[in-house]
Design a binder for these strands. Structure first.
Lengths: 201, 201
DNA sequence: CTGAATCACTACATTGACTGCATTAATACA
DNA sequence: TGTATTAATGCAGTCAATGTAGTGATTCAG
């Protein structure tokens, strides 16, 4: 990696660090892009060279993680049932996210920030919707005879919706990371299985 | 209803009408609030007196409809199983939305606008998330022994996620209204039931 | 090793969404 | 009629985001 690229990455990191610090001490909305740029010792224009919008700074690495998760759907085990593939993929994504992100406090506070700021929530949900579409496509390619586009979207939407909602409740309740992970796993199981099991009979 | 209130409603309607016309002819992002205000013959300041943000003009009546749907969850039929209540509520909301909104072309084009503009998508998803939380609460009150907050969130998230994803696919495909409604119904059934049925055995 | 091309970064100007504040004029109401 | 509301306005200002033109440090070709 060349010197130029290393420098670029350094200013990017500086922006993220400066911003998260300011967000923590002042709140997200009370922090202006100008303040972030000043704290990172770059011009405002440079900020927008690295991030298309203020909101995207917080999402920074979310996209990469999602892209990583999508790959699981591309390779079902031979003869693997749809529900098993779904659970396997979701569990892998949850485990990975749980290990890397939530345990290290850095990313946990980032998630709390997202859950508590409406603007960030909205951006996050949009990203999730994009990811869903990708996953639905991959799933449909994996089971071409069984799933039409609607069914694929419904199945993926169901699981992602359940996991997201459960995670949101758990995080906004300030549960510790392990509990959040547990809630997500449970939600995935519920979505894939049958609600009927919930109430006796 | 007094004269004052009627006048207020009239300028509100004028703003919506003017805006939708401009959006149709110029696109959402290319239309400025100043243009909308001018077309409705009010000041820009008045626009923001009626809508907290440009995006909210498009969502106008969505909230009312959601509030209406939430009420179904407050009153389960005696002895009604969770899954039946869910299907009944979702079907009622879908039917109502389908009849009132989608069939009259006005609201259908509104939905297409939302699906096609990222900013509006995001706002819509946020509203849905808020509604989900309300519904989850109502559901938990209806089945206090069976559902903890996480399970309630997961169940509701699963159904709403499935229906939303299916609707998004159908609408962006430019399916006619009846097909969109059918896709939503099918998604609800899939989410409530068991995916296992999808692939033979 | 040198000149040209590339690219991160900057300064400046501008647009457009949104807010606070003070004011006006039309309704409501006593 | 006189007084209180309140929808609507004008204006000044903040902030996010974009276009343009330019500078200087790296990269690379010959």
């Amino acid at each position: 990696m060349g010197l130029r690229e290393r420098k670029k990455r350094r200013t990017r990191e500086a922006l993220i660090t400066a911003a998260m610090g300011l967000f923590r001490s002042q709140g997200y909305e009370q922090t202006t892009v100008a303040q972030i740029a000043a704290a990172a010792e770059v011009s405002v224009r440079t900020f927008f060279l690295h991030f298309p919008a203020k909101e995207d700074l917080v999402m920074a690495e979310v996209s990469e993680r999602v892209a990583l998760g999508v790959r699981v759907f591309e390779q079902p085990l031979p003869g693997e049932h749809l529900t098993d593939l779904l659970l396997r993929a979701v569990n892998q994504m949850i485990t990975h996210t749980g290990d890397t992100d939530l345990v290290s406090g850095v990313a946990y506070s980032r998630v709390q920030l997202i859950v508590s700021v409406p603007d960030l929530q909205a951006r996050m949900l949009r990203r999730l919707a994009e990811a869903q579409a990708l996953i639905a496509d991959a799933l449909r390619r994996a089971y071409p005879e069984a799933l039409d586009p609607i069914a694929a979207a419904a199945v993926v939407g169901s699981v992602v919706g359940a996991v997201t909602a459960a995670a949101a409740v758990s995080v906004s309740r300030e549960d510790p990371p392990e509990r959040v992970v547990a809630a997500m796993r449970r939600a995935a199981g519920l979505a894939v299985g049958d609600f009927r099991a919930l109430i006796g009979q």
